[in-house]
Design a protein around this nucleic acid. Structure first.
Lengths: 240, 240
DNA sequence: AAGATATTGTTAATAAGTTAACGAATATTT
DNA sequence: AAATATTCGTTAACTTATTAACAATATCTT
């Protein structure tokens, strides 16, 4: 069984699995039955070695000369991530981002289905958003227990996210997908995964600044000149 | 100057800077002038050592016994990330997620301002979304060059994102914030930062599965029992 | 049927990131 | 004014992740 191999400490590999799954589904759709690590590597611009190591933890084995059996890979990854049977989730915070997530159709194929949406703002309660009727957050605890929901999605403003996390933890929710820029304080046993846009933007900003420093010298007062991209420099970073 | 310290290879530190900045702004609002690494550590649940190392790359120095000067920290981080002067950006893909980003007010304080929004779908072009009039994607190249916009945000479905990235690269945009689950192929010199929700969800799913395996034994057929959270186990993972 | 070849799976080496440790410096206190 | 305690900044150990190398194996070809 694949589950036994599920050790802590290969989170980076786990993080790459969805990309593999994506590719494999595309390949499967075109009828391709076997795929080699070298082919995956060239497609996703990674090292073949890394791919073999990543795929190893799903438990499936490849055949020399042919590669890996694509349908088996798909099945194994989906099982490994439990994306084969649906997990019910509550979403709290029916603002712009919450609404976007509620409307996103792709979660179904990742084993996630949002079954109810909540908001603390009385003005929003009762209204329909993306087909969901917004419920008052006071009802969350009771509903979570009755419906046995174990996953929560937080898309509220920063100042309210800790309170929501408390409510969720108290209601039997033990996995929180947190879209607010706050380091949540949760009881032992509750898992938090953060999606931090500011963090991501910081990396982009920094890379951009770093590249500017690399390619242009600073003028005396420390200001940077805008970069003009030479038109003839339009080449792909990788061949193929 | 802080810029000289901008080396590649401390991306993890860069990733943590926004969280520091956030905290420092809160402290500044309450009138606090100095903060020690130990205090930051207890607040953000990190190691003091790591914080000193992270802050070191902004170039500011702290005073023993007092700590770091909060306004100086804020200024240094904002300069380091160029979040002090605004960067103009184009957004392509006025769907749910794109609309959420267009409506997000918080980007201004991260030095980002979305100046125009595009879509390939003629049905969406011309309509107003979050105060932006949606422009046809054909106009992107010309506008980007004329307005000297260097940053692009991609929130289109996976199948169209590569084409948008191509258009952007060709139009002088050299930093792409990519919200589609695709490994973009871009020319040398163009920077891509990905926000991959599937990846994040995979980690959450896996952590959840892993915890279930840890705390419960598998039943014979490999099915997992749902976890009942003991009510008396409601304790914070860290004190204070 | 036997050799050649492509590809896996594992083990070793390198690099990166995190955690720990410790000397130096500065307020505060007696 | 001297001693003490707190905090910085740097160096070093450790852990984790990535990259590379290599032996084993199955398929294809002649």
């Amino acid at each position: 069984m694949a589950a036994e191999k599920a050790r802590a400490g290969n989170l980076m590999s786990v993080r790459r699995l969805p990309a593999y799954l994506n590719l494999f589904k595309q390949l499967n759709a075109t009828g391709r039955e076997f795929v080699s690590s070298t082919h995956i590597a060239s497609e996703l611009r990674l090292q073949p070695d890394q791919i073999r190591k990543d795929l190893a933890l799903t438990g499936i084995v490849g055949k020399p000369k042919s590669g890996y059996h694509v349908p088996a890979l798909i099945k194994a990854i989906e099982e490994f991530l439990r994306w084969d049977n649906n997990t019910d989730a509550f979403l709290v915070g029916a603002g712009n981002l919450g609404s976007a997530l509620l409307g996103y159709q792709g979660f179904a194929q990742h084993g996630l289905s949002i079954v109810a949406a909540f908001d603390a703002d009385p003005a929003k309660v009762g209204h329909m958003v993306q087909g969901y009727q917004i419920l008052p957050v006071e009802k969350l605890a009771d509903l979570a227990k009755r419906m046995h929901v174990h996953m929560g999605i937080i898309t509220v403003p920063a100042e309210h996210s800790q309170a929501i996390a408390d409510t969720m933890s108290f209601s039997g929710i033990n996995a929180i997908w947190n879209f607010s820029p706050v380091n949540l304080d949760v009881p032992d046993g509750v898992i938090v995964e953060n999606v931090d846009l500011a963090s991501s933007l910081a990396v982009l900003s920094h890379k951009l600044v770093f590249r500017m420093i690399q390619e242009h010298t600073l003028s005396e007062d420390g200001e940077l000149e805008p970069i003009a991209i030479p038109e003839d420099n339009f080449e792909r970073s990788t061949g193929e």
